[in-house]
Design a protein around this nucleic acid. Structure first.
Lengths: 293, 293
DNA sequence: ATAATAGTGTCTTTCAGACAGTATAGT
DNA sequence: ACTATACTGTCTGAAAGACACTATTAT
């Protein structure tokens, strides 16, 4: 009769083939665009951080920062370590997004990639992460539903949503087309995402980038995560601009202010030297009723 | 100058230590409780499927069904294969829930577990999955927030939510206490879940079971997933009972019916022989506007 | 004065919550 | 007749959406 102890002593993990495991971290931010007219507010741009690969496979392609986990390190710790190493960013909002593990997604060997998503404040990190030496660059995100096909089937339907993801940094344009296939059959609905065409983006990383955008668009509506993109103090118009650039739609000012009113606290400070009426500065209200999942 | 091809030919995956990867699948359902009073409707019970482990480690403990992935098999395919093998369930709603990878969560070696969640129709699978020979059993779920502590800190707070998870099957009672730690610091909020005490549940599986319940409670409010728990035809009262047992609260009938009205289509059929007024049978309306994430 | 943003008031429609009432089978 | 469920109507108040109006700065 063997005990758990003797079992563990004799356990040989190399009996089975094992995949490699990486941790990749999507870093999103919203940054001010340069401005000519002294009166106008700077436009906000939604960006994602990509690294230019220096090694095979996908040499010279752009990828989400990340790497192989250490054997004595938790997944989230690995994500934070990589983020610190590559961008010097730490103590930041991080959440697990999705684990990608399709056969053949990495030409070297079976690689399973646990993907995290983080949001950073543009002011705090803008310079460092844009650092050229690291070959890390912020890419402006343009993500749009461009077409939708629906076919009726008996007892259900099949819908294909076609998305265009364009990532732009200076003269570099990374263009990807994605399909989201929704299959409804009886009471059962399944969703599959796949890359139809992509250009200069490594592995299946375009999938994660688009999924991260959709998750963010969703969670911004019912959680506090936006504030991870904001500086300590901000105007309500800036906050609204961040919502608008992420959701890719205009919002009405009066309604927006009502909606966020219980998430913020006003300060006594105002903006100045803006060529128009000064604006009150606000902070995040940490004592609001939270909603987390 | 080496090409990608020569790089790949010389790539040796055994250079680095690699973890083992498993896929585990939470299977939830809602089942009718036996009934004495011929007039009364059967009560619904929310259940999760657990397997009794026959091998070390955690021999004789209860675990979520799952196992090691094959090297030539996608993650979701692995989840579906295991589900088919162990419970004969197939063609069912499945979604990725979370990937657990803490060091030391498996005493054998580093094991990373990609956890899926599935919902099944009690009528269709009730008998098979309860099959004793497979040592798989349905456990009734009782999941409650039992206490909450909040401590103010400068520039934020720390909140601890204490949950009690009880799983009951006949005379077996599996009791777990979980902490959800919410730490708000400045604009940054982090959430950590951990097991404080658990009894006869293998690995960190109690974490996944509770997280799955919370995800389901959340998604039932704004998606169609409930219908994966329903038979082809059902009464609105049955649908309401399923909502109530998952959310663990009573709902008002008139309001509930208004809320679900565009998700269902009425049939011409009615229930009968119930000892009270017959009820109209409904089906899922596959053509409703969907919300998926 | 002007151009631009800051900020508020209010109407309407929609939706969530609460409650009370009527209807109808099986014994 | 009685019991238990089936089903509907309507009131209230909150929230979402739309729009119009006033206020204030730097040049």
């Amino acid at each position: 009769m063997d005990s758990e102890q003797t079992f563990l002593k004799n356990y040989d993990p190399s009996k089975y083939d094992r995949p490699s495991v990486t941790v990749d971290t999507l870093v999103y931010t919203v940054i001010n665009k340069e401005n000519s007219n002294y009166r106008k507010l700077p436009e906000k741009v939604f960006k994602v951080l990509l690294i230019k690969r220096k090694k095979h496979p996908f040499k010279d392609y752009w990828a989400i920062p990340g790497g192989f986990i250490y054997m004595d390190e938790n997944l989230e710790d690995a994500a934070r370590r990589e983020l610190k190493e590559e961008t010097n960013i730490e103590d930041i909002y991080l959440e697990q997004l999705y684990t990608y593990g399709d056969v053949g997604r990495d030409p070297r060997t079976r690689v399973i990639s646990c993907c995290y998503m983080s949001l950073i404040d543009s002011m705090q990190f803008e310079v460092k992460a844009s650092d050229d030496a690291k070959d890390a660059k912020w890419f402006e995100i343009k993500y749009k539903l461009i077409d939708e096909e629906k076919k009726k089937k008996d007892n259900g339907y099949r819908k294909k949503k076609i998305y265009q993801l364009n990532l732009v940094c200076e003269e570099i344009v990374l263009e990807t087309t994605l399909h989201v296939m929704i299959e409804a059959h009886g009471r059962n609905t399944s969703v599959k995402r796949k890359i139809v065409s992509t250009h200069l983006i490594a592995f299946d990383h375009a999938l994660a980038i688009s999924y991260g955008i959709e998750r963010l668009r969703n969670k911004i509506e019912y959680t506090d995560i936006v504030f991870n993109l904001m500086p300590e103090e901000f105007t309500l118009t800036e906050l609204q601009q961040v919502y608008e650039v992420i959701l890719d739609k205009k919002l009405l000012k009066a309604n927006f202010r009502r909606k966020v009113s219980d998430m913020v606290i006003e300060t006594n400070a105002y903006t100045k030297d803006k060529g128009h009426r000064p604006s009150k500065l606000y902070r995040f209200n940490p004592n609001r009723k939270e909603k987390l999942i």
